[in-house]
Structures are given as C-alpha cells and as structure tokens.
C-alpha cells in the first residue's frame, strides 16, 4: 500500500509558481499551475541539474532557469527536441492539502 505524506497546503504555492520540499534523497519541486493543478518533480533538470523549482511555469510545463529546456509537469519529460526526464512524484490532493507518495521520495537518490 502506498504511503502518502502531507507536505502542506495548495495555497502555500503561488499560482503559476513552485515551492521546494527538502526530501531525504534531494529536493522536490512542487508546482501549482494557473488552473489549479498540482504536480511534483525532482528538482533537478535532466540537462545539467538546474533547479526546476526556479523556472517559469506555463500551461502544464516549466522552463528551466539555466538553459531554457521545457519540462512537462505531467510526465517530467523534456519537450521538443531535448531528451531526458526529471523524475515524477505522484501527488494526491485531499481538500486543500497536498500529499506526496513516500516511496517516490526515496527512489531518486542523488
């Protein structure tokens, strides 16, 4: 059975923004899109490790602040011609609260 960990309120994250969660195996970026969806990815760009939490969120994607790769929030995959994946962490919303799948937090060791 999946164990879910409460990491905070949706409203802790700015709309079209992101917050960082310090995880046991590195930082996690949690995103909130303009239409209210919440996604979580490992906070490391598949290109050269840029912090995706610092990128600009548009639609269901984020543009990495270091070299402008565009990463899908739904899959973690780089878009367009670029190749690579930032690990995706399953998210569950209960009311106003955000829960992340505990198992996934450990999976991506640095």
């Amino acid at each position: 059975m999946t164990e879910w960990i409460d990491v905070g309120l949706i409203t802790d994250i700015p709309v079209q923004g992101s917050r960082v969660i310090a995880g046991p195996a590195g930082d996690i970026a949690v995103f909130r899109t303009a239409n209210g969806s919440v996604f979580a990815l490992r906070d490391r760009c598949p290109h050269k490790g840029g912090p995706l939490s610092e990128g600009m969120v548009h639609g269901n994607a984020v543009t990495c602040p270091l070299h402008n790769w565009v990463i899908s929030l739904e899959t973690g995959q780089a878009q367009g011609a670029d190749q690579g994946c930032a690990g995706k962490i399953p998210v569950r919303i209960e009311g106003e609260r955000i829960l992340l799948a505990a198992s996934a937090l450990h999976r991506y060791a640095a």
Binding site: D12, I13, R19, V20, I21, G23, H106
Partner: peptide, 14 residues
C-alpha cells in the same frame, strides 16, 4: 518569504 524557505523539510524521513 516563500521564495527563500522550503515548504516542508522531509530530510529526516528516512
């Protein structure tokens, strides 16, 4: 302030 602090710290989880 939200820009400069993590939303949650789960480092000790393990």
């Amino acid at each position: 302030a939200h820009e400069f602090t993590p939303m949650a710290n789960l480092k000790l989880l393990e």
